[in-house]
């Protein structure tokens, strides 16, 4: 059999792969194209060539104040991720470097909280938010997103920290490093890549969270998910403007996502697939 891949084989595989990739990417591509069309163009039938107007982007900002939900998304996603990291790093650290017999059970239990369906606690959470005046506030939603992503953050950090070999820490101790020096010179530099990918992945998850962000906000703290969802009942024809808003909502996270593909797999499978 042919060990050397024939050129023909490669060309066929390439065409097939690009075709599949194009079909999968098409809805996103078409959204971007439509966002560059005028409204009449957008409903005038299938066309891949827009007139190239940026008017829709300007309209979305002037008419719907796009910047506010965008900033809310940034505040909520980044804020909740950093908060989760601050809480999770010590926990993941302790579990990775001084594991006990119960460490595994604790990790499993943490993951199980992630499996609690959101709707099951919708009523009490909604009532609590209402009674404490947290509805439609940044602080309320940030805490919410922190809590729902905390188990994943602990898990991801744990799988990364566990890969730092114990012998290196011992070597540092033999070399005369004290606890503080061990943390500054050896542990932190080795842990930073894992923390960075956890940060990245969690921002993506928080940015796209679409249950609590929609249900617990109205305007003040509403992020892009709620902003876009509010377009579901159309007021007249608005294809092009909707596309512009959608493009702006997904663009930043799409780009972040492209950078994090590799970490995505091990992060979301809790290290089960690498």
């Amino acid at each position: 059999m042919a060990r050397v891949v024939t050129r023909q084989h490669k060309v066929i595989a390439t065409i097939a792969a690009w075709l599949v990739a194009f079909l999968i990417f098409f809805p996103i591509l078409y959204t971007i194209i439509t966002s560059l069309k005028t409204e009449p163009e957008a409903i005038a039938g299938f066309s891949l060539i827009p007139s190239g107007t940026f008017e829709n982007y300007i309209t979305v900002q002037t008419r719907n104040d796009y910047i506010r939900p965008f900033m809310n998304s940034v505040i909520l996603a980044v804020g909740s991720t950093i908060l989760a990291l601050i809480i999770a790093i010590p926990a993941a650290w302790a579990m990775a470097f001084s594991p006990t017999k119960r460490t595994k059970d604790v990790l499993m239990w943490m993951l199980s909280t992630k499996m609690m369906p959101a709707v099951a606690v919708l009523v009490p959470i909604y009532l609590m938010f209402r009674d404490f005046g947290l509805l439609d506030t940044h602080i309320g939603l940030t805490v919410m997103l922190t809590l729902i992503n905390l188990p994943i953050v602990v898990w991801m950090l744990y799988t990364y920290f566990r890969e730092i070999p114990g012998e290196i820490l011992e070597a540092a101790r033999m070399d005369g490093a004290g606890l503080w020096q061990e943390i500054v010179y050896v542990l932190t530099p080795m842990a930073v890549p894992g923390i960075a990918s956890t940060l990245l992945l969690n921002i993506i998850l928080a940015w796209n969270e679409s249950f609590w962000t929609i249900r617990l906000t109205t305007t003040t703290a509403a992020p892009l998910t709620a902003f876009i969802a509010s377009f579901s009942s159309p007021q007249g024809l608005f294809w092009a403007k909707l596309s512009a808003a959608s493009t702006m909502a997904i663009a930043p996270i799409l780009i972040l996502g492209w950078f994090s593909q590799k970490q995505l797999v091990r992060g979301l499978t809790f290290g089960a697939v690498k």
């Binding site: 599949v20 996103i28 796209n208 579901s232 959608s246 972040l256």
Partner: peptide, 16 residues
């Protein structure tokens, strides 16, 4: 290109 839809927030995906 293939991985991209995963990063699209659900409301956008649905509306598109």
């Amino acid at each position: 290109l293939v991985i991209s839809p995963f990063f699209v927030m659900p409301p956008v995906a649905a509306l598109v």
